[in-house]
Design a protein around this nucleic acid. Sequence first.
DNA 1: TATTGTTATACTCTATAACTATA
DNA 2: TATAGTTATAGAGTATAACAATA
Lengths: 148, 148
Amino acid sequence: LPVAFLLAQVGAQAAARFAERLVPLGLSPPQAGILRALGAQPGISQQALVDHLGIFPSRGVTMIDELERLELVERRDSLDDRRSYALHLTAKGNRALEAIGRVAQEHQDALLAALNKKERETLGQLLQRVADHEGLRPGVHPGFRRKG
Amino acid sequence: LPVAFLLAQVGAQAAARFAERLVPLGLSPPQAGILRALGAQPGISQQALVDHLGIFPSRGVTMIDELERLELVERRDSLDDRRSYALHLTAKGNRALEAIGRVAQEHQDALLAALNKKERETLGQLLQRVADHEGLRPGVHPGFRRKG
DNA sequence: TATTGTTATACTCTATAACTATA
DNA sequence: TATAGTTATAGAGTATAACAATA
C-alpha cells in the first residue's frame, strides 16, 4: 500500500482546498501563515519571523509589504534596536485571523467528511507522530520553508 | 486538533523528501509521475496522457521532449492517426521506473518509521477513504493537476 | 565587523494563446 | 470544423546577491 504517496496526494488536496476557501478572504496560504504566526507571537521582528517560517528575508519583506498595504499588519519601530521593526496584527488583521480559523474548521469538516469523530482523532494522532518524527514545527507548513 | 493542517503539512513533507530521493536518479516528481503513467498504460497518446494527469497539452510536450532527450521515453508514430504519437518507455525508461519504485519504498519506510505495521495500515486505510471521498485519481498527484 | 532590513535581478515552474498538420 | 501536437509568450512564486542603515 503506497501510504507515503497517499499522504502526499491527500495533503496536496487539503492544501489546494484550503487555498480555495481563502480566496473569498482575499488571502493566500502563505499570507494566512504569517497572520497566524503574528497572532501567536505579536511584536516579533521580521528576522525572527522569517527564521521561524524558514523563508528568505527578501521574501519576508515583500509579504509584509503586501499585508501592510492590506492594513492587516503594521510595522512598529522597535524601541531598543532602530534597525528592526516589531510586527503586529491590526484590528483588521485580528478579524482576518478569526475568519481564517472559521474557514479552516469548515475546510476540515468537509475534507474529513468520510471519517467519524473517532477516526479523525486516530488519523490526527498518527499524523502527529509522523510530524514529530520528521521534526516538523507545529503550525509551519513545509511549503513555506526553504530547502534544507 | 488541526488534522487538515497536519495532513497538508505532513503531505508536503512527504513530497519534499521523495523529491530529494529522486535527485540521484536525475528525475523530478512530475517526470516520475509520467514514467509511472506510461508504465501503466503503454502506447497512449500525449492527449490521453495529459488528460489523465490533468495538465496542459503544452506542458506535456515540454515534459515528453525532456524525457525523450533523456532516452527514457519514445514517441512512436501512431498507426491509425498520423496526428498523434504512441508513447512508450524505453528499456532505460523501464529501469528508471523500477528504480523509482525502490526509492519510493525506502522513502515510505523512512517517513513512517514512527509507526508500526498495523498503524501504517490504519493510516493508509483512513487516507484512502479521504482520497476516495475527494474523488482523487489513484496515482495522480494533485500538484500535477490544473485548477478545477 | 556583524546584523536588520531592503532592493534589484534571475530563475523555475506553469498557464495562456496562437499556430500547423492532420482528420 | 474539430482534434493532436507544437511554439511562443507571459505570469506567479521564489531564490540569489548586492546594498544601506544601524549595531
